[in-house]
Design a protein around this nucleic acid. Sequence first.
DNA 1: CCACGCATGTTGACACTGTCAACACATGTT
DNA 2: AACATGTGTTGACAGTGTCAACATGCGTGG
Lengths: 200, 200
Amino acid sequence: MQEKSPRPYHHGDLKRVVIETAQAMLQEEKGWQFTLREVARRAGVSHAAPYKHFPDKSALLAELATLGFDQLHREVDGTSGRHARASRTEFVAAAKAYIQFGTANPSLYRLMFSADVDKKAFRTLDEAAAGAFAVLTGILERGQDSGALKKQPVRAQAAATWALLHGFTLLAIDGQLLPDKVGAKPIDAVLTSLLEGLAS
Amino acid sequence: MQEKSPRPYHHGDLKRVVIETAQAMLQEEKGWQFTLREVARRAGVSHAAPYKHFPDKSALLAELATLGFDQLHREVDGTSGRHARASRTEFVAAAKAYIQFGTANPSLYRLMFSADVDKKAFRTLDEAAAGAFAVLTGILERGQDSGALKKQPVRAQAAATWALLHGFTLLAIDGQLLPDKVGAKPIDAVLTSLLEGLAS
DNA sequence: CCACGCATGTTGACACTGTCAACACATGTT
DNA sequence: AACATGTGTTGACAGTGTCAACATGCGTGG
């Protein structure tokens, strides 16, 4: 039987394949502490080929994080869009979507906030992060407009909301929210508590 | 003039010097992404000498993180000790000490929660982290006992408190709490809000 | 259709890393 | 004094990230 021809010299779509290979490796035990050479091996190209698509390894990691923020943005926006006229429900739905995103994608979520991706160095990443964050401020603004939430600097409310969601997401990822220790519905409880502090 | 003798073959206190050198390097731009060889060079020994005191690089990083948790524990405990009979004041003082620790030691704080130190792999580290966390649960327990805080699973309250403090500490470290955006006293505001949710 | 420019591959090299084994030196103990 | 142990050094290894030079192929214009 005739052996299959090797891949033509020009891959044609190598950037996407490198990204997808890296995303797959992110799910493995080492998370994003893979090597670029191993990504290239799995993508079936030479060790230097990714350098034609990414200036360096940190650029690939930034790309992964950017895609993560974009996905987080879509998931949080998607839930809040369905509840746009009910501030409290909108808020809770968005918050749960946030935590759900983190627990469904623990390595990606951690990468997004890791020291290995520098938002100051990658403009697209910084914008993606800001965009995801803006969903929160949008929900809080609508809550204030509707009278459901206190009139306060919305960035302060957003900071408090993000801080709690982020910390809780990390606890959820680390398996620290055991029902026998924190009660049956820790996420509901914490969101209720947060809303008590934010509500008019 | 007689030249100074080189260091004797036996350093005598190399482990401590390696740790202190690494702590100093933690304050530099690369944070904990230094190399062990560079630590050894600055400590004035060969590249393999640290391997007589640490099984590998991650053990050194775990040691730094452990010392960080111990210091955090002392600082949070110290403030709450001075307010042990006034739950609300005790809580606020401890919370501010927590955030202050993080903003005073940004790289160390980030290392403590980084993927580069694995609490499951280092028992002393895990215990130090648990000890620091236990200060929070102790404060909350005393608050519940005194009637100042709701009777709830204390671990749930601790989870919510830690989540908020951790997230806020990261925002403070990243310079995201600008007064013109979040108001003049964001930390006071967020702690007040948190206490509203926790208080009886 | 051909030539050129560009995109995007490969090869090979470099400096460096983490880590290990074997050895060297010094200390402590019997 | 001899031995065991602790703790240094030297040298090596396998691997990394990244770069330069070259190789291949695609797209475009004449």
